[in-house]
Amino acid sequence: MTITEDTRLQDATTPAALPADAEELARMRRRRAEKIGQWLLPTLVVLLSLVAWDRIVVINEIPHYILPRPGLVAKTLVEDWPILFDSLLVTLQITMGALAIAVLGGVGLAVLFTQSRWIEMSFFPYAVILQVTPIVSVAPLIFIYVDSKIAGLLICAWIVAFFPILSNTTLGLRSADHNLRDLFNVYGATRWQRLRFLQLPSALPYFLGGLRIAGGLSLIGAVVAEYVAGTGGIGSGLAFRILEAGYRLNIPRMFAALLLIALTGIVIFASLSFLSHMLLRKWHESAIKRET
């Protein structure tokens, strides 16, 4: 008994040796142009805006304590690097710590919720309340009741970040194929086996979607909490630098710190996207490029 009818797998991997027709050539050209444009166009936009910014400042003779020229911002970034870098590390620490707790707490709660309907009914409303209450209004209370500033910051960032992970993972754990569930039952799977081999893998794409949102949110949470906490001294993050520079009318440094926060957000998002791609590229629709 041999199989001859199924050869799609081989076909997909062998490159066509035939000359491409006009339509195909046009399509290939278009794709190449798109690939270059993807990088070139945003770069051009940035460069043009920087030039425009610079010209506006010069032509209108705006003083640097109102709006600094882009060159001055870059110079400040280099000159103040030791201060800014230390602050960046503090902010990163809070962000990463909050994200880690959000992952543990979010996934842990999601697993509990899917194991017991009663637990979910009891606690889910409070998770929602925690999510919808603006963190700026809760943060001052947290800093009253929590002595350690780092702990307070972590709690604030965690509150902001954990909900997307919780709700996405809960949804994912629930979306396991019901036929597969039946199959697991026929084979006498235990609750733990069902969780480990069926529900968690099914939830992975959902979890990673939540994680990408939570990564950005934990940075926002960390920055906002720091604004509220406000005090200086050792262990001051980027948000404190922005506040401090604002009081001293050191606008170039404000811009430099702002730039660092934005870059941090981009790096977090990009690395989580990369992680997601690496984990899903073999099997999940979202990570698969179509040939045609």
């Binding site: 081999f197 069926l198 099997w283």
Partner: peptide, 8 residues
């Protein structure tokens, strides 16, 4: 349905 685990 074939009911396979897509991740495996």
């Amino acid at each position: 349905e074939p009911t396979l685990m897509p991740w495996a």
